[in-house]
Simulated scan of single mutants.
Amino acid sequence: MSEMLYILQTVLLPIFIMILLGFIIQKKFSLDLNTLAKLNIYVFVPGFIFVKFYKTDFAISLLLYIVMFFIIYMIVLFMIGKGIAVFCKTDKGEATTLTNSLMFFNSGNYGVPVNDLVFKGDPLAMSVQVIVLSLQNIFTFSYGVFAIQSLHIGKLKALLGYFKMPVLYALLLAIVLNYANVPIPEFIWTPANYVADAMIAIALLMLGAQISNINFSFKWSKSYVYVFIRLIIGPFIALIIIKIMALDGIIAQTLFIASAMPTSVNSSVIAQEYDNHPELAAELVFLSTLLSAITVVIVIYLSRIWF
């Protein structure tokens, strides 16, 4: 119990303090969240991914293992989400938002700080987390947008949105420059690091600001079922996949902890932008983020025992 309290104090409490600060600032000043979101998507996240991938040495086999894990994990969560939606006879729009809440987890403005604090900046752990973050962003703003838009504008137009995301290009450029050992001039590398260092703080503040705009209710709804799957069932699915793939050590710990993150705020963002049950999406983000203060601590504790 003392170790779990230590994890809560040293890992999650600093994160929730930043989220609370963002919450308070938004209530007082009504920040322009659309501008903050654009800065995060088009500047801070790509910059963070570029810097982390460029300066980290990792084997290409590591990337392939994580991509394989990620694909299997997404397929299983998709099947569970769709299965529940069919069983409950949920309409397609609502089913898409609910299923997205399972597949899109907060690996960026929540997962990265957790990883940084748990593993104390270990480069291998952060490399794994950055790969997961990159895959999540690519997947969210490709399939996620596609799944919602295809309900309204058709699959072809929805597919074109995939190529507008800078995260993919930042990832590819960093990998190419890393493996080719191409030096980056100091006048470019210095501002790139400024951007990367700002990502976590800005992301947490924005998460708090976004949560402050959510109209939530604690009345029982099907949201709780999906939140339970995201926070409890999700990590155990990841554990099974990790064991099947025979992963261990820091890589296994990182993937296990990453799988326990709450629903991504971006799932609410795209639901709002494309008017697909935005209130439901916001409720899922809020509930999962709130309850993760308990579940993530337990998962971190278990990761130290099992791996």
Rank of each mutant, 00 (worst) to 15 (best):
M1R: 11
L5H: 05
I7V: 12
I7C: 02
V11N: 08
I15W: 04
M18K: 11
I19Y: 00
L21R: 09
F23I: 00
I24W: 12
I24L: 12
F29T: 04
S30G: 09
L31F: 01
L31C: 09
D32A: 11
L33P: 03
T35F: 09
K38M: 11
L39I: 13
N40P: 02
I41E: 13
P46F: 04
G47K: 03
F48D: 02
V51M: 10
K52R: 14
Y54E: 04
L63Y: 13
L63F: 14
L64N: 10
Y65G: 10
M68T: 15
Y73M: 01
F78W: 11
M79L: 15
A85M: 10
T90H: 05
E94C: 09
N100L: 14
S101P: 04
S101A: 12
L102E: 02
F104W: 06
F105H: 12
F105Y: 15
S107A: 15
S107K: 02
G111H: 00
G111W: 04
V114G: 03
D116R: 14
V118T: 06
K120V: 10
D122Q: 05
L124T: 14
A125H: 04
M126D: 13
V128I: 06
V130M: 09
V130S: 06
S134G: 14
V145I: 15
F146E: 04
F146G: 05
I148F: 05
I148H: 02
L151P: 08
L151F: 07
H152C: 09
I153A: 06
K155S: 15
M165E: 13
P166G: 10
P166Y: 02
V167E: 05
L171W: 12
L171D: 10
A174M: 07
L177G: 03
I184H: 01
I188C: 08
W189S: 14
N193Y: 08
N193L: 08
Y194P: 06
A196C: 06
A198G: 15
A198D: 10
A198V: 09
M199N: 14
A201P: 03
I202N: 11
M206C: 11
M206S: 12
I214D: 01
I214N: 00
F216D: 00
K219T: 12
W220S: 13
W220H: 06
S223H: 08
Y224R: 01
V225P: 03
V225L: 15
V225F: 13
Y226C: 07
Y226W: 07
I233H: 11
I233T: 14
P235N: 05
I237W: 00
I241Y: 00
I241L: 06
I242G: 07
K243R: 15
K243I: 04
I244Q: 07
A246I: 11
G249N: 05
I250R: 11
T254W: 03
F256E: 04
A258H: 05
S259R: 04
S259C: 04
M261A: 11
M261K: 03
P262F: 02
S264Q: 12
S267W: 00
S267I: 09
I270F: 06
Q272S: 14
Q272R: 12
Y274A: 08
Y274E: 07
A281W: 01
L284T: 03
L284F: 03
F286C: 06
S288C: 03
S288G: 09
S288I: 04
L290E: 02
L290A: 12
S292K: 02
A293M: 15
I294H: 02
T295L: 07
V297F: 05
I298W: 04
V299S: 08
S303M: 07
R304D: 12
I305S: 08
W306C: 04
